[in-house]
């Protein structure tokens, strides 16, 4: 095997996926070359660093909930007016933890964009009492949950393909004031808008 071919196989020697014959050839070459041994050591460290820093999905469970909701919807006929999307109304007094669980369970849905709703609510005016938001890309799930609880908001749709969510306030009065309060939490919310 040519030296270049041996070099090309070094990463696979390091990750242990060569077949027996290839492994033996590469090992023999390594034993005869200090440069190859150094490459192997360096590659092993790079692999170790890469595996130690594999990104994790903070919202893995929410992703599963969204997925299961999608396949459930797929198996059901689509109604003209999607009443299943009507927001839950939960009193904050009932319990913050319950509200958070329900809110987070609604991290689901098919795409929507703030400027172009893709479906019509049964009541026809639900958009009027919602906020469209996008969370900061690096915000933690617990920070989102805390903010929603504090502000009395539940997620009723999203994320869209562009990462937008629609939030419904438990108290629908003073939506403008609420939007300002939400905007002030800039560590959590990247974008806040009242749909027209």
């Amino acid at each position: 095997m040519a030296h270049k071919d041996i070099e090309a196989l070094l990463p696979f020697y390091v990750n242990g996926t060569l077949d027996e014959h290839e492994h033996a050839e590469v090992r023999q070459a390594i034993e005869q070359s200090a440069a190859l041994r150094q490459d192997v050591e360096a590659l092993a460290l790079i692999r170790e660093e890469m595996q130690a820093n594999t990104p994790t999905n903070e919202a893995a469970e929410l992703g599963l909930a969204r997925l299961m909701r999608s396949i459930e919807q797929e198996s059901q006929p689509t109604p003209a007016n999607d009443t299943a999307r009507a927001p839950l109304r939960i009193s904050p007094i009932v319990g913050g933890a319950v509200a958070a669980m329900v809110a987070l369970a609604f991290y689901a849905g098919t795409g929507f964009a703030p400027e172009k709703p893709e479906y019509i609510q049964a009541s026809g005016d639900e958009m009027a009492a919602t906020l469209t938001v996008r969370f900061q890309p690096d915000v933690q799930q617990h920070a989102v949950a805390a903010a929603l609880l504090e502000l009395g908001l539940v997620i009723v749709d999203g994320p869209s393909a562009r990462g937008f969510y629609r939030l419904k306030p438990l108290d629908e009065s003073e939506l403008d004031t609420l939007a300002e309060t939400v905007r002030a939490q800039s560590s959590v919310f990247e974008f806040v808008e009242i749909p027209q």
């Binding site: 990104p55 999905n57 893995a60 992703g63 969204r66 997925l67 999608s70 996008r134």
Partner: peptide, 28 residues
């Protein structure tokens, strides 16, 4: 299957896109 494959797939996708929202959508 999701529980077995979500982590490696998300890592693979996120590293390409470097955007957690976009990576979550694509994973979906």
């Amino acid at each position: 299957f999701y529980r077995a494959m979500e982590r490696p797939l998300y890592g693979f996708i996120f590293l390409k896109l470097n955007d957690s929202h976009q990576a979550s959508d694509l994973l979906h």
